[in-house]
Nucleic acid binder design. Structure first.
Lengths: 149, 149
DNA sequence: TGTGAAAGATAGATAGC
DNA sequence: GCTATCTATCTTTCACA
């Protein structure tokens, strides 16, 4: 992972459909050297995948909510993690320091969807305490990976 | 944006390098019909880009911090937004409801980096109040777009 | 919008150096 | 790592449904 690898990943993060020749020109290597580096970066897992970044609004998911969660007493951590991994509305879930145990980032069709989501958390027996904040403007928008309805 | 479009975006979100023939087989359309749909989805902006999702740890950015921020009195909103857009450590920045004005998601090389980041926020005159939480486990990992050192 | 087919352009993969 | 070659894939275009 040298400076050239970093530049390649930066360029591919911007646009992964650039020809190898363009990448080569950008970093000062031949097309095949670039190809070989990308192969190695992918094998090592430094590049995890090449994916489409899509617009959540176009997919009918305009609402982004941040949900702070303290698990219910006695709820299984492993069970909750399986639940989070399975729900396509959950675009990120981190175990965090501080007074809450998890921070969820959720994409939903509407505010009503937020209410349904919280109800599902409660019905699953996961929800101890929680606090929800809604995203207004996206000042720096992270990539969005659509995981299905 | 019908069911087929959604399936295409879901498949491309998983792996954007599949041949059109494979996508066609998955959704029950010909290669040329798939090609045409992807072109339209891209033109409309439903597909924003095709990018590499990389591993922040491999890039020397193992620390993810959530920084809740209330802007300093008199700080310019526009100025702060330009600052956020320019700093590659900031992978997401949302204006949010509730007691804080912004939520920043920041990728950094170390805990010392978090301290430096907060110091830079303060030095820029943006920081009113703030509260930082560190991510421990990534239960559901969002895609990561490397924006450079 | 979609199908099927065919031509041409492009880029990825491979092998020898 | 480079150059050259081979091959898979994409793109474009057509006639037709």
């Amino acid at each position: 992972m040298d400076e050239i690898d970093r530049k390649l990943i930066e360029a591919l993060s911007e646009d992964a459909r650039q020809p190898l020749s363009a990448l080569g020109a950008a970093v000062g290597l031949s097309q095949s050297a670039v190809n070989e580096r990308i192969r190695r970066l992918t094998d090592r897992g430094a590049i995890r995948r090449v994916m489409a970044d899509s617009d959540p609004e176009a997919l009918g998911l305009p609402v982004l909510a941040f949900v702070w969660l303290a698990l219910a007493d006695g709820a299984s951590e492993a069970g909750f993690r399986a639940f989070a991994a399975a729900d396509p509305a959950i675009i990120a879930c981190h175990h965090v320091t501080g007074q809450w145990s998890y921070l969820l980032q959720v994409r939903l069709p509407s505010l009503a969807g937020v209410e349904l989501f919280l109800a599902a958390l409660k019905a699953g027996g996961w929800l101890g305490r929680s606090e929800t904040m809604l995203a207004l403007t996206e000042v720096v928008a992270p990539p969005f990976r659509y995981r299905g309805a």
